[in-house]
Amino acid sequence: MREKEVVIRIENLVKRFQGRPVLDGVNLEIHRGETFVVIGSTGCGKSTLLRNMIGSLKPDSGKVFLLGNDITDLHEDELDDVRMKIGMSFQSSALFDSMTVAENVSLGLIEHTRLQKSVIDIIVKMKLELVGLRGFEDLMPSELSGGMRKRVGLARAIAMDPEIVFYDEPTSGLDPITQGVIDKLIIDLSKKLSITSVVVTHDMKSAMAIADKIAMLYDGKILEVGTGCQIQKSKSEIVQQFITGCHDGPIHFFKQKEDYLDHLV
């Protein structure tokens, strides 16, 4: 069987904040068309990894190849050319407050294409139909619920027909039904538009529902990569603790007790 094209390759990625390594030698390959989910506990560096993948953060060392381009080495203009081929759905939706839903979705098309307004209006309606929000074009972001904002963010992310869509915690802060709707939307978009999806989440239920492949990030490194089934059957205690959500295990929520007295006094 022919191996699918690698669209994202990360080699020995290291990123430190104030000397503390958040990513400490991450290696990863993501293939065209797959839905790749990065899981890990809160604050483990998932969003930092995502921001390195889209060039918002520069790594301290290592390489990130996005659609064949080493984005750690690119000038801002060249990086913009690569960014035209990707879309990003933010944790907070990041909709532009001063613009309507339609203006949010159409912004990239207006700024980067020479399409006529009538054509852009049709594209906006098509994208909003895909996320189930056709008819909401004239509302302001402040008039939308959390789930609707996420869906508008998604419509904006796919407005330019990107090759890859990145999702930062797409289901966090939503009720279970809306979570299910967003999960289905991610699967549908990947299938209907053949988009490569990279999802960062700590929601295991969502990860299992959408992922072709799951990678567990722990202690700044990728601990394990595999299909949902493989991850569920993993022999790693860390992975098992994360899947089951057990408070007792190798992943420490509290700091070690040995130095507690020293720290107190």
């Binding site: 913009d80 960014r83 879309g87 933010f90 532009f96 407050d97 990239g108 330019m160």
Partner: peptide, 22 residues
Amino acid sequence: GTMKVSEQIEALETMALSPVRF
């Protein structure tokens, strides 16, 4: 500042739009 802390500036950059120009 509000746009920055609510990731709107980053959203602009991801859409290949310069916050300076825009």
